[in-house]
Write a protein that binds this DNA or RNA. Sequence first.
DNA 1: TGTTAGCACTCAACACAAACGAGTGCTAAC
DNA 2: GTTAGCACTCGTTTGTGTTGAGTGCTAACA
Lengths: 347, 347
Amino acid sequence: MELDNRKLQILAAIVERYILTGEPVGSKTLAQMLEFQVSPATIRNEMSALFDLGLLEQPHTSSGRIPSHLGYRVYINRLMHCKPLTEDERDEIDALFNVKDPDPDRLLEDAAGALAEYTNLAAISTTITPKHVTVRRIELVPIDRRTLVLLVVASNGVIKNKVTRVDFNLTKELLEFFNKFANDRFIGRSMDEISMIYLSSVAVALGEYSRMFTPLLGGLYELCRSINDGQYFTRGESNLLEYKEFGLVAHDLLTTLATRSKISDIVPFQKEGIKISIGKENALAEFTDSSVIVATYNIGNDSCGAIGLIGPVRMDYQKMIPHLEYFAKTLGKLLSDTLENEDENEE
Amino acid sequence: MELDNRKLQILAAIVERYILTGEPVGSKTLAQMLEFQVSPATIRNEMSALFDLGLLEQPHTSSGRIPSHLGYRVYINRLMHCKPLTEDERDEIDALFNVKDPDPDRLLEDAAGALAEYTNLAAISTTITPKHVTVRRIELVPIDRRTLVLLVVASNGVIKNKVTRVDFNLTKELLEFFNKFANDRFIGRSMDEISMIYLSSVAVALGEYSRMFTPLLGGLYELCRSINDGQYFTRGESNLLEYKEFGLVAHDLLTTLATRSKISDIVPFQKEGIKISIGKENALAEFTDSSVIVATYNIGNDSCGAIGLIGPVRMDYQKMIPHLEYFAKTLGKLLSDTLENEDENEE
DNA sequence: TGTTAGCACTCAACACAAACGAGTGCTAAC
DNA sequence: GTTAGCACTCGTTTGTGTTGAGTGCTAACA
């Protein structure tokens, strides 16, 4: 039995109808919807075949059909026609990003917030940190005699700081010494390289100063770690509560979304483009009833992070995918503007 | 009709029983529970009186009674005996705070996280920024020729930074000039004073440089604003989904908790001590079914922020209150250690 | 006057049955 | 290959009866 054209048309109609209404779709409804004229009975035969192929499911013997996760997959891969955004929609999204003075950190956070509000789904934004993100600069800013701010500037534009205390008086000489030392040892190194092992070798090189500067090295390590782990922001989690399909798993879902270490399972690293995980295709069990759409954004030509949507499996892919794509494109452009600008100015 | 001792004892028993089981409490159950011996009929008379006083409610004519919000109020104010923490409990909480290198920013965030996990409720932590928080220090850290990091150190120990770009080359002279200028104008000023109006007067003083440095002034303004608005962290929101009383309002509840501007309505400014808002006592409608317990924490002798719990009205106040108090005390102590340390080192 | 036993009453919760209807699968005819 | 016809399925809704925890009221008691 093969998937002929009519079967595909019926599958598409079922998926679209079900996405719209949330009700199982029956043969009669379909007969009215479809552009070719066939009787409900014929459609029933076709539906039965689609069921045998695993593309449809039947909640109970005497109800209409709903798409299986595989059915969605076929729909998305072969049948769906994404509608390009209208002028108005693009303007609306542009307006959401219309910040006077974009701070890269905030931009990512706000993008997730805007996306969540715009789509009424949960949104997530992350930086992927490819291997080649390196330390661009380390700064020490003294606050008082024993407190300073450590500042690490990464090659991907991320800047992180941390307040650190030491147990000796921070003289100008000591600061300059450590500043030079740290920059010599760290600049140009990839975040991955800066491991505990590397750190201890560096500590040895500090000789008699080693003990004094341990808190500072520790601070730098933490900062590099957190740049390497990447940023991530989730927004609009509560939107998911509106979808009844989540009923009991809602708690698990939100808990997972609030757990840093789980994020990479939800939004796995990908080179580029759009990735859609439908229901069971997700790695985590609590996402069996959700679909995750992730788009990478580029800074210049490198994909530097991802922005994604989390919603029920029954979600309007046709609409969401181009919208998400446009979000990612806009985000990437803004970040590029910001950072290329910096690169130009590089000494 | 007055609230004699027996009525109070019955009220306390009903509240405690209801908190424990979540079921309306009947006269027979009470008769068995109470330490004095009376018949269910007598208790029914008393319950009827408590009902007339507005301290009890009756879900339906033929069911037991549950405490009204006023009933909880009377219970909390007059009847409840908080059990002091056991040694073990204190150790457990201490362990949660056992961080080697407390960063004040992270500390607040982690405290909310720990509290949420420990109590299985939603937790919130905020800094209140009293009038007298002032700018202690401004630093400019150049990143490249047109990018710099603005750093504002506040008198309450909060340090905030922001990446800012300018459209001229940042020479050493210009940096030093603006650094000195900004410190002259801002240090010692309270965050409140740094208004848009103040800013424009400062801009005027910059004379010909005014246009160049506008982004920097804007950045400083934003940093001061965000220090003044205070920090706030919410954690464990998803825990609330476990309580069936929230059913439909759960969405509104979580949405509100994710909305920065609503936070001050949930955790209003207070001088010190513990504040409990039961159900309808809360300012926001979506909190009608929740109680909020807020404890302030002190740095030295000044109350500098608050940490709070959000849970269903039916929550174990007797247990939660002393636990929250201990959290607040511990948090305050840690922050004090950290910051007093800094003060000692002040030049 | 406060307490209590007795009793009729209420009402949510549960169980069961009947009716309904949207939708199916199958068969036989076109 | 398509379709009309028809029996069948099963979730949903509606209605009825039963149960039981719990009440309010009354009258008797200490």
